[in-house]
Design a protein around this nucleic acid. Structure first.
Length: 450
DNA sequence: TTTTGAGTTGTTCGA
DNA sequence: GTCGAACAACTCAAA
């Protein structure tokens, strides 16, 4: 008996229940497969593709160079490979995204008779759809979800790292593609399972204790930087949660809540797949939007004249990653100051971010736009200067990414138009007046409210 | 069924 | 400079 283990976004061997299922079903060997699906490759930006390819190379090494990588539509590649090796089953970690669910349905239907697509585990500690209220309906507010999620609990990590699997060969592979062209100077985090575990160990042993205090500070290295590893499954959240269990303290608790946000948004998306592309709260379809391309370009290229916004958007292009606090600030600026459609900003993020995840990204944007799970406070408009002074108190973050402002010392960098000598040469003037833009946003939201 | 309490991440104004 | 209240109701969760 042989089986196929079809990797998707679970590019690791440790704590991998689908791997154990594949091994148990395929006593004579398991064929490790990755399908280069154009439907996923096309919308992913170069940073994400490069990271994916590097994670695949690490995985290939971990399976002794036997990873079969093939381009094409999964519904033709997977059945063909299954037939070629005479597999009696195909194993995956379940995918809960709108595209993945539909794709897996197609693959399932295309497999030869008697060969099941076996879904074991998921990229989440608790699979989307499992956490429910007593009456069986899903939760739409984060805090009650978090409590129910904790009550529900999760399995201990699967001990698959040391499991010996006989990896099959004999199927031709095109191999992992070369990295796409990356923006000059872009440095990506190291990919692969070992790198993920290293990163986690470093965070767990040093920064997690300070996480509650430092996680909001873009000028400090206070966050885990694990988002990209969770995105590609080079580490499973269950592994992190197990490691945290028994740890008291605000830092561990806050980090656990952040992991739960990821699970919450995946759950929301599972129940309402349309929320990937439109407001969860349909009333906001009537919100009056602008579509000024010049303003969008100024935002995307980091020349709005608001230092913290420009620093954030330049970091996005330079590093394919941005601190969450900064994501909120630049998102708020696009939505509330420029009155542009959140979906346009969400798409730009997904294209640029190495960790871009549909559920987390698009629901995060909806939180900022006020049309997602967070019910009401539409009057919450981020002030880019106040946010800068509060979360980048010395101005170090801004100066790191905006060279034109490096001559300005201290927090004065957050409002260069107030400098006695005026703003430094070369730094753009503000494209909008925040106070006026805020009033305009409140007026537009007020109309939708009724 | 009804009622009550609560809700990640904010800003501004006036005392 | 600091602090609390107002923003504006509304929806969701749970008793």
């Amino acid at each position: 008996m042989t089986s196929v283990l079809w990797f998707r976004r679970d590019l690791r061997l440790g704590d991998n229940p689908a791997l154990l299922a594949a091994r148990d079903a395929g006593g004579d060997g398991v064929l490790p497969l990755f399908v280069l699906d154009d439907a996923l490759r096309r919308p992913s930006g170069a940073p994400r593709l490069a990271f994916l390819y590097r994670a695949l190379r690490a995985l290939d090494e971990a399976v002794g160079g036997r990873l079969v990588v093939l381009p094409g539509p999964p519904e033709s590649v997977v059945p063909r490979v299954a037939e070629e090796v005479g597999a009696s089953s195909v194993h995956v970690a379940a995918d809960f995204g709108p595209y993945g669910r539909e794709r897996d349905g197609r693959v399932e239907a295309a497999l030869p008779g008697g060969v099941p697509l076996v879904r074991t585990g998921s990229p989440y500690a608790v699979a989307p759809g499992r956490v429910r209220k007593d009456d069986g309906t899903p939760l739409r507010v984060y805090t009650p979800f978090y409590r129910a999620w904790l009550r529900h609990g999760w399995r201990a990590p699967a001990r698959s790292a040391d499991v010996s699997v006989r990896w099959l060969t004999g199927v031709d592979s095109t191999g992992v593609p070369a990295d796409p062209d990356l923006p000059a100077g872009l440095r990506l985090p190291e990919a692969g399972e070992a790198a993920a575990l290293d990163r986690w160990a470093e965070f767990r042993d040093s920064a997690v204790g300070r996480y509650a205090d430092h996680r909001d500070r873009p000028d400090l290295p206070g966050t885990s930087r694990l988002s990209v590893h969770l995105k590609y499954g080079t580490v499973h959240p269950r592994t992190l949660l197990a490691d945290l269990s028994g740890r008291t303290g605000q830092g561990a608790e806050t980090f656990r809540r952040e992991l739960a946000w990821r699970e919450f948004y995946a759950d929301v998306l599972w129940h309402e797949p349309r929320s990937a592309r439109e407001c969860l709260n349909t009333r906001f379809a009537a919100l009056e939007l602008d579509s000024d391309q010049d303003r969008f370009a100024a935002w995307a290229e980091g020349r709005t004249g608001y230092p913290i916004v420009d620093a954030g958007m330049r970091q996005l292009r330079a590093e394919a990653w941005v601190h969450n606090r900064i994501r909120m600030i630049v998102a708020s600026f696009l939505v509330k100051d420029l009155h542009l459609d959140w979906t346009v900003g969400a798409r730009e993020f997904l294209r640029r971010l190495v960790d871009g995840d549909l559920a987390s990204n698009n629901h995060g944007w909806q939180w900022v736009a006020g049309c997602g799970t967070d019910a009401s406070p539409y009057h919450r408009v981020f002030n880019p200067v106040t946010q800068g002074r509060k979360f980048d108190p010395a101005g170090d973050y801004v100066r790191r990414y905006v060279p034109e402002l490096r001559s300005v010392d201290g927090p004065a960098v957050h409002a260069p138009w107030e400098l006695p000598d005026g703003p430094p040469e070369g730094y753009p003037a503000r494209i909008v007046d925040h106070a006026a833009a805020r009033a305009e946003a409140l007026a537009r939201y007020e109309k939708v409210r009724r």
